[in-house]
Each structure stands twice: as C-alpha cells, then as structure tokens.
Amino acid sequence: MIYHIISKPAWMEAQENGVYEPPSLHTDQFIHCSTEEQVSGVANILYAGRTDLFVLGIQEDQVEAEIVYEDLYELNQLYPHIYGGLNLNAVHKVYRLEPDDEGEFAFQPSTELEYSG
C-alpha cells in the first residue's frame, strides 16, 4: 500500500471526474506518494496548519499507471511516484488526517478514522 495526501476539495473533484490528476501530474509529470512511514513527515513539512486533509490508501498492484520509487530530491529516501492519472478503483481506503493538539500530524492507518462520505 502507498499513500497520497489530498485535500477534501481535491478528493471530491477526483470522485466527480472518475480519475485523480493533481497539478503535480502536469508540472512534475507524476503524482507524489509516500510509504506509510513517510506520510507524517511529508504532512508536517508541507501541510502544517491544514485541517482539510485526507490520506488515500492506494493498492499498488491496481494502479494502471507506472509507479517508480525514486529519490529525486536527494533526501536519501525512495518515494513512490505515480506516472499518470490515478484510477480511483486503486484507492482502497480514505483516512482523515488531522493534526494533534500541538498541530503535528502522526499518521497511523490502524488508528486513523476512515472517511466514508
């Protein structure tokens, strides 16, 4: 399973369109994703202060586009990138991602609330 952080409005739009194609697909040519262990760090660096976030749990073997694990920013970590639009049938779970009382994100799929809207 790989994960992608998404805003609630972007997730609603993807569901209307039947495919997820964020701006990064056009600027970077891929969709940024993370492993379970990387989600919290990414969220805390890029999304501090946000309260409208979800995490998509994506089943890799159901993604139609190519997935490449790579370290494009010399962080000494391989991040999964989806090189194409994300077919929504590959999304198996949608979690609400909420900061704690100190504003920090600590993603743990086993304890996160699943979104069912």
Rank of each mutant, 00 (worst) to 15 (best):
M12T: 06
G84H: 01
L86N: 09
E114M: 05
I67N: 04
N89P: 01
H4T: 10
G103K: 12
Y20I: 01
L86S: 12
M1Q: 09
Q108H: 13
V63S: 02
E21T: 14
N44E: 01
D28A: 01
D100K: 13
A10H: 01
I67F: 07
G41W: 04
G117E: 09
E64H: 07
A65K: 11
Q108Y: 12
D52V: 03
E112F: 00
A106G: 03
L56S: 08
Y73S: 15
Y95N: 10
G117M: 01
E114A: 03
W11N: 06
V55I: 08
T27H: 04
G57A: 15
G41K: 06
E60L: 06
E21C: 15
Q108I: 14
S40W: 05
H92P: 00
E74D: 13
I6D: 06
E60D: 05
E64L: 07
L25Y: 05
V19E: 11
L86Q: 09
D100N: 15
Y20K: 04
P9S: 10
E104I: 02
V55H: 02
A43E: 11
P23W: 00
A10Q: 02
G18M: 05
V91T: 09
I58W: 07
A106K: 11
Q108R: 14
S40L: 10
I31F: 06
S40V: 09
N87Q: 10
L113G: 05
A90T: 11
E36L: 03
V91N: 10
P80S: 03
K93R: 15
A43K: 12
S24E: 05
S110W: 02
P22N: 08
V19F: 04
Q29A: 05
I45M: 01
V63L: 04
E16F: 04
N17V: 00
E104S: 02
Y115A: 14
Y115R: 09
Q38H: 09
V55E: 04
E114W: 00
Y3R: 03
E102N: 13
P80L: 01
E13D: 14
D71W: 05
G18C: 06
V55P: 04
A14F: 00
I82N: 02
V91I: 14
A106R: 09
A14Y: 04
T111R: 06
E64V: 12
S34M: 08
F54H: 14
L56V: 04
P109Y: 08
